[in-house]
């Protein structure tokens, strides 16, 4: 029997905490929210404390935060329509660049696996790719993609390849890759019946095609697999591109919208509007719920994310103004 132990409750934000992101070292957690601030938490002795509060970057809600793969930069996306990139070259974290271009709320920002690109998305229905120049702290728009028909909620890079996925209010997930000099949409994953809130790539890459999980307002979680040209299952592929198929639908667990999910070595973790956090594991062809933490928070769970180094450690944040760090154990 699995259980969750709550290691700590991080308090300090006022209002909804929207998102949290682990530093690649696994030692620092960045959180952001309705109070327009970003907080950086790390361990002092045996307890987690807030070491830094970043207040000057945004004039509205900070929706998401994301650490660069090198761990030296933190990017934040805000309802004020901008993306800020923070670094601590001066000895303390400061906003070194502000990326403008989206017409309204920026919902998400993420770094490519090698750190050479930033991807952002917005209610303006577009996904932007930015070239990163680390020498001059310059971010040049490389592409603007208008593939979605509605609000784009989330972007997520493949863990190793420069393949980008986006999730939208239009109920679909789309895939993009670089083709000669531009970025193009190469696949549309349709099967959810409402807004897709979050997407997470499988960390295991076994050469037989990639997998991605998505969660939705429709209360389900879906697992999708890419089938490469010439696959043994005989699934037709569009030209040289892989074909994406929904291979599992996990339903009947969260009674309300599923807002967040993450795919780690300990399983798929989900959190949502029912205040619960759930962990699913693959047993043969089936996804089995191995743990449910009812009332994990006093209100909606907005984000769940596995620690990159300690694979049984999880951070979550909620409308209840708190963030929690959990350890999954037997």
């Amino acid at each position: 029997v699995m259980k969750f132990s709550c290691e700590t409750v991080l308090t300090g934000h006022t209002g909804r905490v929207w998102n949290c992101s682990w530093h690649p070292s696994g030692n620092v957690l960045a959180t952001c929210g309705e109070d327009k601030t970003i907080r950086l938490w790390s361990k002092e002795g045996s307890s987690w404390v807030c070491k830094t509060v970043l207040t000057e970057g945004h004039t509205r809600t900070v929706r998401t935060v994301s650490w660069s793969p090198c761990g030296k930069y933190l990017a934040s996306a805000s309802f004020d329509g901008t993306v800020a990139v923070w670094d601590n070259k001066s000895g303390q974290f400061e906003c070194g660049a502000s990326l403008e271009g989206h017409e309204n709320e920026v919902k998400c920002v993420v770094w490519s696996p090698g750190g050479e690109y930033l991807a952002t998305c917005s209610r303006d229905k577009s996904v932007w790719l930015w070239d990163v120049d680390y020498d001059d702290d310059e971010y040049m728009c490389a592409s603007v993609l208008h593939s979605h028909g509605q609000d784009v909620k989330r972007v997520a890079w493949h863990h190793e390849k420069n393949i980008l996925a986006s999730a939208s209010y239009d109920n679909t997930v789309k895939m993009y890759k670089e083709d000669s000099d531009d970025w193009v949409c190469v696949a549309t994953l349709s099967s959810h019946t409402s807004t897709v809130w979050d997407i997470a790539w499988d960390r295991k890459v076994d050469g037989e095609g990639d997998r991605i999980a998505s969660c939705s307002e429709d209360t389900t979680v879906k697992v999708w697999q890419s089938f490469l040209p010439g696959n043994k299952e005989g699934i037709a592929t569009p030209g040289k591109e892989p074909a994406w198929k929904c291979v599992s639908t996990i339903s009947g667990h969260h009674p309300r919208a599923v807002y967040s999910l993450d795919w780690g070595l300990a399983g798929l973790v989900t959190g949502g509007g029912d205040d619960a956090i759930r962990v699913f594991r693959e047993e043969g062809e089936e996804w089995v719920c191995v743990h449910t933490e009812q009332d994990s928070h006093g209100m909606d769970v907005n984000c769940v994310v596995w620690n990159p180094k300690n694979t049984d450690m999880l951070a979550s944040c909620s409308d209840d103004e708190t963030c929690k760090i959990w350890t999954l154990g037997e």
């Binding site: 909804r16 309705e34 509205r60 809600t61 309802f79 609000d151 909620k153 209010y169 909606d300």
Partner: peptide
């Protein structure tokens, strides 16, 4: 959509 409601109220 709680996110759109939150943004609208800002």
């Amino acid at each position: 959509d709680k996110e759109r409601v939150a943004a609208a109220l800002e």
